[in-house]
């Protein structure tokens, strides 16, 4: 009965292969088949953004993408952003500015912010709020998330200027 397909992806820089039914949702492939449990499932209707990952250079919601559609894609999840020995500035700033509480939205939030700051390296507060509007948080009221993203942008720009 099963019509599993041979799925090839590049996840966090590594080529991975797995068998999956075409109908499996990318979020389930990542979480169940590949053991990448950073991205979460919150609403299942593409409203909350807890499942946000980066696919081929764009932020997407992995709950509304079939495994088959992702065939061949390059995917970055929270697990691919920073390492324990070298955290990404966003990860540091979320902690510094108390931009998280229960932590459930955080992987999607940071993964989205990571792409946002590449798209818009020096955002205004309004641009951060608009650019992060696909990610819901029930705990923080966003104020400290916005603060963390703006602080991270600042920090990244300072580092970039110093390097130039």
């Amino acid at each position: 009965m099963s019509n599993r397909m041979h799925l090839t992806l590049k996840v966090n820089g590594e080529a991975v292969e797995t068998l999956a039914e075409p109908r499996e949702l990318l979020i389930h492939v990542l979480r169940e088949r590949l053991g990448i449990t950073g991205p979460h499932i919150g609403c299942e209707t593409s409203h909350c953004g807890a499942c946000t990952v980066d696919m081929d250079g764009k932020s997407v919601k992995a709950c509304t993408i079939f495994a088959a559609q992702a065939q061949g894609a390059e995917i970055t999840t929270i697990e691919g952003i920073g390492t324990p020995d070298s955290l990404h500035v966003l990860q540091e700033m979320f902690r510094e500015h108390h931009g998280l509480q229960c932590g459930f939205c955080t992987p999607g939030m940071i993964t989205r912010a990571w792409r946002l700051l590449q798209e818009t390296p020096s955002p205004t507060e309004e641009e951060v709020r608009f650019g992060m509007a696909g990610n819901l948080c029930r705990c923080t009221g966003y104020q400290n998330i916005v603060k963390a993203v703006l602080a991270a942008a600042n920090e990244l720009n300072t580092v970039k200027e110093a390097a130039e």
């Binding site: 593409s46 953004g49 989205r112």
Partner: peptide
Amino acid sequence: IADPQVRNL
């Protein structure tokens, strides 16, 4: 329309 992630797809 929707939000950034949805507009991306």
